[in-house]
Simulated scan of single mutants.
Amino acid sequence: MQVDWHTFGLSLVPLVGLAQFYVKRYFRRFNEEVDLTVQTVLITNAETQLGRALGLEFAKRNARVILACRSMIEGGLARLDIVANSGRSDRNVLARILDMRSLDGVRDFADLVLTHEERQVQLDILVNIPAHIGFPSPQPANDTTKFYNENYLGPFLLTTLLLDLLKKSGAQPCIVHVGSFLRKTDSVDLDYLKSGEEISFDKIMQTKPMLGQSRVRLHSNVRTMRAMFTSELARRVSELGITVCCTNPGKDPDEGTQILLHCALSRTLQSDSVHIFSGWQKDNVHDLAKNSTLCEKFWKYSETLIREFPNDASDSQV
């Protein structure tokens, strides 16, 4: 029987493409050799699966890792797991309590880091993992304060409080903001920024109607706010050698960990611009985040919000 090799070859094309997809999807790894000896990494919401996996990878690269967790019970378990699997001594993996839902709690945590880390000389990498990636169950109305605190205002406050410490890094300091995919339709009410009129916090947090679902609007807000914050942060530190990234790591914690390692450690990323990633691919900057004037004004407004917005008490386990 004569084989039609041309037809046979064409039949293999889909299989080859599928194989390449799975290799790229499941086997791509951050493979740059980076030794983090004497460097300190801080990860927020480190009790999550993504936070634990990332902490382990940093520890394997000889970093000193601070796990900022909502409760000491979860933080202690994460710490024990990382110490057991990384070969690092327990004094190089620390667990600290940080509940972003309480802005006073964020201030207390930052004071603790600044007091202790000043003696340790530096903080080199800050990874802000949000409490929610994707869409959680709808939040009760009285939990809106907590939602904004833990997904935007808390990370904003923590980053600004620790910025001077990051500037002292003797390595290549980096700030990574983790979040879900930013959509072109995401927005917040920024009309007041253009007109200069005073406006209440309630109005700025209202988006244009999106499917009539409050949880969708909440996430639209924080995604846009995070993008604008990241863009303005990158502009402010561009001459200080600090790399700033914002990334959607996807749903797979293993792959997400590799993507975050790329953002935090890759020497191919320059500190003179903001780096937006969706998975492994660089993504376009959101239109609002491109407007430097709006981003600067929103930064200043965020500074006002962290002073005036209600400080919701957390219910953390100590």
Results as ranks from 00 to 15, higher is better:
Gln2Asp: 11
Val3Asp: 03
Leu10Trp: 15
Leu15Lys: 08
Gly17Tyr: 01
Phe21Thr: 04
Tyr22Phe: 15
Lys24Val: 05
Tyr26Pro: 02
Glu32Pro: 06
Thr44Asn: 08
Thr44Arg: 02
Ala46Thr: 01
Thr48Lys: 07
Arg52Gln: 15
Arg61Val: 03
Leu80Tyr: 03
Asp81Gly: 01
Val83Tyr: 07
Arg88Ala: 10
Leu94Trp: 05
Leu94Thr: 02
Asp104Ala: 09
Val106Gln: 15
Val113Cys: 14
Leu114Trp: 00
Leu114Pro: 00
Arg119Thr: 09
Gln120Asn: 13
Gln122Lys: 09
Gln122Leu: 10
Ala131Arg: 11
Gly134Leu: 04
Phe135Lys: 05
Phe135Arg: 11
Ser137His: 12
Gln139Tyr: 10
Pro140Trp: 12
Asn142Phe: 13
Thr144Asn: 09
Phe156Cys: 04
Asp164Thr: 13
Cys174Trp: 01
Phe181Cys: 04
Leu182Met: 14
Leu182Gly: 02
Asp189Ala: 14
Asp189Lys: 10
Asp189Thr: 08
Lys194Cys: 04
Glu198Ile: 02
Ser200Lys: 06
Ile204Ala: 11
Gln206Ser: 12
Gln206Ala: 12
Leu211Ile: 05
Gly212Ala: 06
His219Pro: 00
Met228Gln: 11
Leu233Glu: 08
Arg235Leu: 14
Pro249Tyr: 07
Glu255Phe: 00
Leu260Tyr: 08
Ala264Glu: 02
Thr268Glu: 15
Ser271Tyr: 06
Phe277Pro: 05
Asp287Cys: 01
Cys295Asn: 14
Phe298Ile: 06
Phe309Leu: 09
Pro310Ser: 15
Ser314Tyr: 01
Asp315Glu: 13
Asp315Ser: 09
Gln317Ala: 12
